[in-house]
């Protein structure tokens, strides 16, 4: 792992974390995508080797390690699938709730809480 890769992964993670804290859900999804790419970059960076491709190497040649490359490819595929799922979820949420801002979603949660109030009031009445 050299400095360039470490800085790149750190910058990606920082941008992703910043986006994650936004109000708009699409930016939150973008933040999660950046964070998963930061993990993939760390994976590649921690397995850097120099050498020929390991298809049919000569006996005394350095061969680059294929395992981190396979791990990174799998991580990318999984990241694609989860990003697709998250986008579909945010799309559905936007359609159903007609808003993409999550403080308004929280307001709807608060409405549900207030509907529980009569039950709690009954509990308090019975206790006294």
């Amino acid at each position: 792992m050299n400095l360039a890769f470490a800085t790149g992964a750190a910058v990606l993670f920082g941008c992703g974390a910043y986006l994650l804290l936004h109000r708009d859900l699409f930016r939150v999804v973008g933040g999660i995508a950046l964070i998963s790419q930061a993990a993939t970059l760390t994976l590649i960076a921690s397995g850097l080797t120099r050498g020929r491709a390991p298809i049919s190497p000569e006996p005394n040649e350095p061969v680059s390690d294929p395992v981190p490359q396979a791990l990174a490819l799998t991580a990318l595929v999984i990241g694609l699938a989860t990003l697709a799922l998250l986008l579909a979820l945010v799309h559905r949420l936007t359609v159903v709730l007609r808003t993409a801002r999550h403080d308004e979603l929280a307001a709807q949660e608060a409405q549900h809480e207030s509907r529980l109030e009569p039950d709690r009031q009954r509990d308090r009445d019975e206790a006294t």
Partner: peptide, 24 residues
């Protein structure tokens, strides 16, 4: 839908940490 979004977001961050640990 809100439950699914919170679940997905938190567990994706958990998966990120898991992937880093596997790399380590």
């Amino acid at each position: 839908l809100r439950a699914a979004l919170v679940f997905a977001a938190v567990n994706l961050l958990g998966s990120f940490i898991f992937l880093l640990s596997v790399a380590g």
